[in-house]
């Protein structure tokens, strides 16, 4: 069965007919050629396919494209403004927070979404005070980034990069 969907992907409006079995990830990669989100497991187990859907991080391999008609999708490519990198991308680069780079676009989208979640006061498994504002210390970063696997083992540098982003954003 086919269905029409309209999506805004990295700022451009895309309208297309899809097999209703098509995941949002396969729509992005196979239909639109938007290859920044990666397929690592297709089962919601690795985070490589993470993008921002209407500003919130989501694993696109677990999302059917038809269920997201009208959504605004931002991939790692769309976070940058051409050659100008998003601050999280710049810090990943500065801290060498990747090796093969395959998990990286997902890590970066996840970090951007995660910082927003913390700002909105969403607690995590390791948040001690469930009522006050969330302080993104290393333990919080590690916990909240644990849905994004990195087989190259860049976690130490990923945490350092995100820590730096948060430090720069926090007014002194």
């Amino acid at each position: 069965m086919d269905a029409r969907v309209t999506l805004t992907v990295d700022g451009s409006r895309r309208e297309l007919t899809v097999d209703t079995r098509t995941t949002l990830l396969d729509l992005l990669r196979d239909r639109l050629g938007a290859m920044a989100p990666k397929k690592g497991c297709d089962h919601g187990q690795c985070g490589a396919c993470t993008v921002l859907i209407d500003g919130r991080r989501a694993t696109t391999c677990l999302a059917f494209a038809v269920a997201h008609d009208g959504a605004t999708v931002t991939t790692a490519q769309g976070l940058s403004n051409g050659a100008e990198l998003h601050p999280v991308q710049q810090d990943f680069l500065d801290h060498d927070a990747f090796q093969c780079g395959y998990c990286t676009p997902g890590q970066i989208c996840s970090a951007v979404g995660m910082i927003e979640e913390a700002r909105a006061g969403h607690p995590s498994h390791v948040t001690r005070d469930l009522t006050g504002p969330v302080v993104l210390d290393d333990e919080e970063i590690r916990e909240r980034m644990s849905g994004n696997l990195c087989r190259c083992g860049a976690y130490v540098n990923i945490v350092a990069a995100i820590r730096d982003v948060i430090l720069k954003e926090t007014p002194p």
Partner: peptide, 15 residues
């Protein structure tokens, strides 16, 4: 810095 790093953080390096 990794030569291909700017492409990788934007998801532009083709696998």
């Amino acid at each position: 810095e990794r030569i291909e790093g700017r492409d990788k953080v934007r998801g532009l390096a083709p696998y």
